[in-house]
């Protein structure tokens, strides 16, 4: 049994690496469809990155070692987090190493490293992007922690597997507090992944960009690694959301069939999520940057309200 579990741990890591570009491709596909454009292939992101890997890296003259280490560090950290969040099985041998708070910490570690690297070359856009990223971060991070707090109060645990298992045991149950923190989580997810109301992942327009501004100086394999890491981050957020709010479909081990079934379940959830996000991005417009604090303040408030509701309704 033990060997199997380690095997699944490994499988999940590899699966996450592959699923992340596919998720990106799927979202681009859906968005193109909704906007009446001709969609590109699902494999397009992966193809693009492989092309980038083959290219030579052009380093800015001033770039320090920090700048060069960052893409690897970023990719390593995010691949690690993607390997640790339960996606198919509730319990993985290594998922005890980080609980959900430590997971949030890892995500912010990745962000801080990237922001520092963006400031390294000393260009106008780099520091602008870093500043905006940190602005989003210092508002989104407490909101995320409050979301986690609400779920943790409900499940009396911050361990990822335990939270998922408790919710599974309980069966389907309408929790107002979970509903609130779920919405808050969605808002945070959009902000942290640079999606539409906060940032536009598709433009290089000075007024809108946050994430793109930070990675302007990167090229070749460095750029590919960072973009891949970014896709992994989306996947991590998605699976974290599933663990916190909708772990149904996760398997607790058992037979191979069950695991295969829960894997299919995960894929279906991922597909639905992609469609939903694409709809959301199609119908909404990007906000002004200085509306972002209010947007994320709203997420924070929702999460705090969720905790209060949890106490009040006694559920």
């Amino acid at each position: 049994m033990s060997a199997w579990v380690w095997f699944f741990q490994l499988i999940q890591g590899v699966m996450a690496l592959l699923l992340a570009p596919l998720l990106m491709g799927w979202m681009a596909y859906c968005r193109a469809r909704f906007q009446h454009r001709r969609p590109s292939s699902l494999w397009q992101p992966l193809r693009q990155w492989i092309k980038l890997f083959h290219k030579e890296v052009v380093l800015a003259e001033l770039a320090s070692p920090l700048f060069r280490v960052t893409p690897y560090a970023l990719f390593g950290i995010l691949a690690l987090t993607a390997g640790l969040v339960p996606m198919v099985l509730t319990d993985l041998p290594l998922s005890g190493a980080v609980d959900v708070i430590a997971l949030a910490g890892l995500l912010s570690l990745a962000r801080v490293i990237l922001a520092l690297a963006a400031m390294d070359v000393g260009t106008a856009f780099g520091s602008l992007g870093a500043r905006r990223e940190m602005l989003v971060a210092f508002l989104a991070e407490p909101a995320l922690l409050m979301v986690i707090f609400a779920s943790a109060s409900l499940n009396a645990s911050t361990s990822l597997s335990k939270m998922a298992a408790t919710t599974l045991d309980r069966g389907f149950y309408l929790y107002p507090s979970l509903a609130f923190s779920g919405v808050a989580f969605l808002l945070v997810l959009l902000a942290e992944n640079g999606r539409i109301p906060v940032d536009n992942p598709e433009t290089h327009l000075e007024l809108t960009m946050i994430h793109e501004a930070m990675i302007l100086e990167y090229s070749g394999r460095h750029l590919a690694l960072i973009e891949w890491a970014n896709a992994l981050k989306m996947l991590v957020y998605f699976s974290l959301g599933m663990v916190l709010f909708f772990p149904f479909g996760l398997s607790r081990g058992g037979s191979g069939w069950e695991i295969a079934l829960s894997f299919i379940g995960f894929i279906i959830k991922l597909l639905i999520f992609g469609v939903a996000l694409a709809i959301l991005e199609t119908v909404s417009a990007k906000q002004r940057l200085f509306r972002v604090p209010e947007y994320l303040g709203g997420a924070f408030l929702l999460a705090v309200l969720a905790i209060l509701l949890h106490d009040l309704l006694g559920t």
């Binding site: 309408l174 107002p176 509903a179």
Partner: peptide, 19 residues
């Protein structure tokens, strides 16, 4: 184990509406 007492679905719905 957290203590929770299952209540009917309508009640859950009501809590949700209140929230």
């Amino acid at each position: 184990m957290p203590h929770w007492n299952p209540v009917p679905f309508a009640q859950q719905l009501l809590d949700l509406f209140a929230a």
